[in-house]
Amino acid sequence: MARSHGTDGCGAYGGLVFGALRVTRTRAGLIGLAACVAAGAGFLGSTDDRPAAAPAPAVPSPSVAPRTPEPTLSAAPAPAGLPVIDYWTAPRGFPADPAAMSLTAVTEGLHPSRSIPVYDAPGGRPRARLTPEISGMPLILPITDRRSGWVAVLLPTANRRIGWLPPKGWTARPLRDHLIVQRRTHKLIWRRDGVRRAAWTVTTGTATTPTPLGRSFVLGRTPTSGAAYANVDALALSSVPENRRALPASLRGAHTGIHGWYDDGSFGRSASNGCVRMPPDAQRTLLKHIGHGTLVTVVD
C-alpha cells in the first residue's frame, strides 16, 4: 500500500488512504471501453484424390421435449430498517461465493435502479439493501448465477459473499473485462472478451496483510495525489482487508485498491498492506479501459 516519508506502510492524502483503500471523496463515471475484435479462420485440406466414401444414411434425431421454465420464486416483503450496504458497512448473513476461486469470466452485471432488498437465497430472507451508488460511485455488481428467476451477485464490503435479487429493480449491464491477480508470481493479467490483452509484474500484500483471495469487482476510480502514487487515479475494489487487526486503526474499515506506485524496485514482491501496486503506465492503461463492475479474481 502506499508508503509515506520512507515508511513501508500506508499513505494518506486528499481524503484517500491506501493499504487498504479508504475513499471519502470520489470522481465517479463510467470509463469508456475500447472495442476489441479478435477473429481467426482456418481449414483442413487433403491431397488424397481417391473418391470419397458414400455418406452414411441420416439417422433421425430423437425428439427432445422442451424444457419447462423454472417458476420464479416470489420475494418476501422487505421489512423497514434493513441495513444499507455501503463502503463502510459489511453485509451479514449472506452465503459464501461457491465459486470464489473460479477463473471463468463473468459477462453480465447489474445496476440497481433504486434502493432494493438483497436476499440470502432465491425466495429467501431479505437481509440488507443495495443502492444505485456506493460512496459516490455507480454500483455495478457482477452476476454469478441464476436460479428460479433470481440472480446471484457478488457483494461489496464483504469478501467472497453473494446475495440474491429478484428480477425487478435493476438493469443489466455487459461486462467484457477480467483482471486476474496471481499472488505467488506477482502478476496482474488483463483479459477482454476471454482474450489476454496484457500482463504486468505488480506488488501484492504481505503475509500479515495479504491481498484478499477470490472474486471481487471494481467499485470505481478515485483520485490520488502525491509522487508516491505517480499522481494517477486508483481503482477501488469491493474487497476489504482479511486481517483488520494487522492494520492501523484508521485502515480497518478500508477497501483494497489497485493503484500506481513510484518505486520500480517494489514490483515482484509481497510488500503492501493488501493493495495491488502497478507501474504508472500500466495503471493508466487500466484506467482507460476498466469500468465499474469489472471482475477481479485473486489467486495464489
Rank of each mutant, 00 (worst) to 15 (best):
K288E: 12
A2G: 15
T131P: 00
S250K: 08
V240W: 00
S61D: 14
L73K: 15
R92P: 00
A41M: 12
L141H: 01
G268R: 12
D86W: 00
L21W: 02
N231G: 05
S225V: 09
T201G: 08
N243L: 11
H111G: 00
R221D: 04
D300F: 07
P138K: 00
D86Y: 01
A56C: 03
K187N: 05
S4P: 04
S238H: 01
S113Y: 00
L110D: 01
P122C: 05
P51G: 03
R277S: 10
R192S: 08
S148P: 01
P174A: 12
G194P: 04
N243F: 15
A38Q: 14
R244G: 15
R173K: 15
T185W: 02
A90R: 15
G226I: 07
T144E: 07
A105W: 03
T72D: 08
G226C: 06
P57I: 06
D145R: 13
N231C: 04
I162N: 02
G220P: 10
A41H: 12
T294S: 13
V299L: 13
M1C: 06
T7S: 15
D281V: 06
T68F: 02
A152V: 04
L179I: 15
G293I: 00
L30T: 11
T24Q: 08
R125D: 12
V106G: 02
W261L: 08
N159I: 05
D86T: 10
L237P: 00
R191S: 07
G265E: 11
A52H: 07
P279Y: 05
A53Q: 12
S61H: 10
V202E: 07
V64K: 13
M137P: 03
L73I: 05
N273H: 15
T47L: 13
Y119S: 06
R127P: 05
V298E: 04
D97C: 12
P142S: 07
V276F: 11
V218A: 03
V106M: 06
L179R: 04
T157K: 14
P132C: 05
V64D: 05
R252D: 09
S239V: 09
G226Y: 10
R245T: 14
V153N: 02
A12M: 04
A56R: 14
P66Q: 08
S46R: 11
K168R: 14
V299W: 09
G81I: 10
N231T: 05
G268Q: 11
T72W: 00
H259T: 08
L219F: 00
T203R: 06
A271R: 10
D49L: 13
V232F: 04
G274C: 09
P142D: 06
S250I: 13
R196N: 04
P138T: 01
M1I: 09
L44Y: 13
R114A: 14
R22P: 00
G9I: 02
V298D: 05
A20N: 05
T157V: 13
W150P: 07
I162Q: 03
R114E: 14
G81Y: 09
T206S: 14
L247S: 08
S46W: 08
R184M: 08
T171F: 01
A80N: 09
L155Y: 04
H111C: 02
P126L: 12
T47F: 11
R277Q: 10
L16S: 06
P69N: 07
L287T: 04
G40A: 15
P55D: 13
D281P: 03
F217L: 06
